[in-house]
Amino acid sequence: MLVNTYSKKIFNMSYQFAGSYQEAEDMTQDIFLKLYHSMEKYDFKKNFTAWFLTLAKNHLIDQYRKTKWEKKTRDGFDEKFIRMDTLNNPETGIEKDETKKFIWSGLNQLPSDIRLCVILRDIQGKRYDEIAEIMNLPLGTAKSRVNRGRLQLAKILKQKKQEEEHEL
């Protein structure tokens, strides 16, 4: 039951964080294994989803710290990620997909905790108070980390656009 309810959420969070499909699968398995081993520590008064996502966050950040020197690139922006935009509106669709590809690779340049805050907020659509609980941060810090992450990505995107303008 836990697997059916949470596997998609955990897998996507791992994939968006690590950027590697194979690694995300392995991490998802490790996170579930860790969950089964830590069940005894779960306090039933607490929100289970937030507790589980905190456990997943700890695992993702720990793994990242251990292997960050190996992680220079992410998987290519998967074809599965490209939505129907391209088919519906070919010109703007292609441009949008280009931006998405660029932002997808730009996620690797964010520090691990900021990257996770941005993923939780913008991709997973979590509320700030949920992010603060999962990341174990004060609300204000969670908000400022999301803003910092978005700004860092926006600066990368802005620079790319300016370079393209110069080329034209």
Binding site: F11, R83, T99, R150
Partner: peptide, 11 residues
């Protein structure tokens, strides 16, 4: 950036 991130689909 924010709108693109919001459009990343779930796999």
């Amino acid at each position: 950036t924010t709108s693109s991130l919001a459009e990343f689909p779930e796999l």
